[in-house]
Nucleic acid binder design. Structure first.
Lengths: 182, 182
DNA sequence: ATTATCTATAGATCTATAGATAATGC
DNA sequence: ATTATCTATAGATCTATAGATAATGC
């Protein structure tokens, strides 16, 4: 039953990574500790030896998801001559629309974060600040870049949420196209 | 205990209206039938004589919330010479940011709707289509108006979600200002 | 000997139902 | 007599804890 400390550390990371995808897919309240641990290949009993509470895991999993976000945006824009257009095309692709669990955390959990208390808001606040700074760095005019970066982020997030909320394929297409344009 | 049919119908409407606010505030999974009925001034036992299931109430309450949305946007733009700017100023005001329960349903429940099954997606799809059509009707150039309407909606929704996800007042202000500008 | 994970379960909460109560509506 | 709402509760599920099990690490 017992595993080595190295394996235990790996198991813990697997739980956080699994949770970061499951929360994005089902919401914080949409999946319980038992199913989370099962999805990570473990049993529920071990959970509270690794984490203080489900709330604590929500924070850790969200931090990981938001770090991945930052990394993915960076990669998408890397070396592009028109970084914003490349970012939009990647972010608003059908692949990202259907990749809910591995996709943008702002779009999946941003609205729920508002209800999760001040610690979660702090996690989102820090991440948004970093994301805006990183995106602004890719742009030209330093005076307006932060405002442009925020508008670009908001536009993409709002577009992805609308596209996903819709079942009609034509309307979804129209929404994504609008987001990619101007 | 029993009340007149007229009162019973009124009670049912109170439950739907209360639910439309409570779901926006706490999420579909964040409030139970017992607390919902208590918030409407009734007890939980009567619920299932009025509604088939909690899912059925979620659909009805969301339909009502989305109808109110359409109405509010319309009112905000009514008679304005620059309807989009007026709409943005109203939508991205500090009042709307804090009025979660009575505020925009796309921003509070749009991401969760994706997980609630095809019936809920259909409800959102229909509402989005109506909202886009109504907003496009307020704009000029008929060729691009739907795309502009969608972009405006997405931008506002994304901005509101980001603003609410943040606890830092300065960052929230910066986000809202970016959304109101160009 | 220590401890990572397991099985089992306590206690709270959630959806849904059953049957009692009392006012309406024929 | 009918029925809108109430109290009470069944059964499922959720978070969290207790104690058993068996492999690691001194």
């Amino acid at each position: 039953m017992r595993v080595s400390r190295k394996t235990a550390e790996k198991n813990r990371e697997t739980v956080v990574r699994t949770a970061s995808e499951q929360f994005r897919t089902y919401g914080y309240d949409g999946i319980g500790v038992a199913n989370l641990m099962k999805a990570a290949g473990l049993t529920q009993g071990g959970f509270y030896k690794q984490f203080k509470s489900k709330d604590a895991l929500e924070i850790e999993a969200t931090e990981l998801a938001l770090e991945e976000n930052l990394e993915l945006w960076s990669q998408a824009m890397d070396g592009a001559s028109d970084p914003v257009q490349v970012l939009k095309d990647w972010y608003l692709s059908p692949q990202h629309v259907s990749a809910v669990g591995k996709g943008c955390t702002y779009a999946t959990l941003g609205a729920e974060a508002t209800r999760q208390g001040s610690e979660m808001q702090h996690v989102f606040g820090t991440a948004i600040e970093q994301q805006v700074t990183a995106l602004a760095g890719k742009l030209g005019d330093p005076a307006e870049t932060r405002q442009v970066a925020i508008r670009t982020m908001a536009q993409m997030i709002g577009t992805l949420i609308l596209a996903r909320a819709v079942s009609d394929a034509d309307l979804q297409d129209e929404i994504l196209q609008a987001g990619r344009g101007a």
